[in-house]
């Protein structure tokens, strides 16, 4: 049986690891390579590394740093930040990335996403969906002043046959007050592609709630691992109690 995945997320701002709240007020949380080493020794299911300011600052991801992070990992790693060409992806795959996570470029260039999928295969192309509440609906958070509705964006990406969605609730980011389960269910109802639910995990109850009330098979988290004593293993032990398949 496929196991649920608990995925630590490292967010990088060009200088160091940071953790944001609602996508702002970044707080420094340490060194990426050391963090990767710790997560590898804990046998985590997978790791995500995102340069959250590359696109905004119009620069490429630091390949040397990413290579050093990946060197520590004997599990799958997804890398995102400023990806806008086939070469960008090739460069990341060459140093051992398993998946790339694309956000900004996906908002403006569907043809490029289709091209990526046909060249690298679906399984390699993950799409980041940063959703922000807008009344009863959600829109896609972006810094390009684009008005994008959640459902429309998912429909577009479904048509591109991407491999995965990393769904982050901007409203819950870093708040550690629980996941936006409604958001995850709305995404899940619109797609047959795997989803990683992100944003809001602060204690064990939050994870139980997410997995009991949605069909997601993966969760990504950062704050809980930076700011509490909980480890990915603790979450798995808890999920095992509610009969979710976990890899211990």
């Amino acid at each position: 049986m496929l196991k649920v995945r608990i995925i630590p997320i490292l967010t990088f701002n060009g200088l160091g690891l940071v953790k944001t709240k609602k996508f702002s007020s970044p707080r420094m949380v340490g060194n990426a390579v050391q963090a990767a080493r710790v997560y590898n020794s804990r046998g985590v299911d997978e790791l995500i590394f995102l340069d959250i300011s590359a696109s905004q600052q119009n620069r490429k991801i630091n390949l040397k740093l990413v290579a050093d992070v990946i060197k520590e990992c004997y599990m799958p790693v997804g890398i995102g930040g400023g990806i806008s060409s086939i070469d960008d992806i090739n460069n990341l795959l060459k140093i051992g990335a398993d998946k790339v996570i694309i956000k900004t470029k996906a908002l403006i260039d569907k043809t490029f996403i289709k091209e990526c999928v046909s060249f690298f295969g679906s399984q390699c192309i993950s799409i980041s969906i940063d959703a922000i509440k807008n009344g009863d609906d959600y829109s896609i958070f972006n810094k390009l002043n684009l008005e994008l509705n959640l459902e429309d964006f998912i429909t577009d990406m479904n048509e591109c046959h991407v491999g995965e969605f990393v769904v982050t609730s901007v409203d819950c980011d870093g708040m550690m007050n629980g996941f936006d389960v409604n958001l995850i269910n709305r995404v899940a109802s619109k797609t047959n592609i795997p989803i990683i639910a992100v944003g809001g995990g602060g204690n064990m109850t939050h994870f139980n709630d997410l997995f009991l009330n949605s069909t997601t098979e993966a969760v990504g988290s950062a704050s809980i691992f930076h700011f509490t004593q909980y480890t990915p293993l603790d979450i798995k032990m808890e999920l095992q109690k509610i009969n979710k398949p976990v890899r211990l």
């Binding site: 049986m1 496929l2 196991k3 649920v4 995945r5 299911d45 997978e46 679906s122 399984q123 491999g163 995965e164 047959n192 592609i193 795997p194 989803i195 098979e217 993966a218 890899r247």
Partner: peptide, 14 residues
């Protein structure tokens, strides 16, 4: 092909 399962299969399986 599956109506019930998400494709790709992504993750750890025994």
């Amino acid at each position: 092909e599956s109506n019930l399962l998400r494709i790709p299969q992504m993750g750890w399986n025994d």
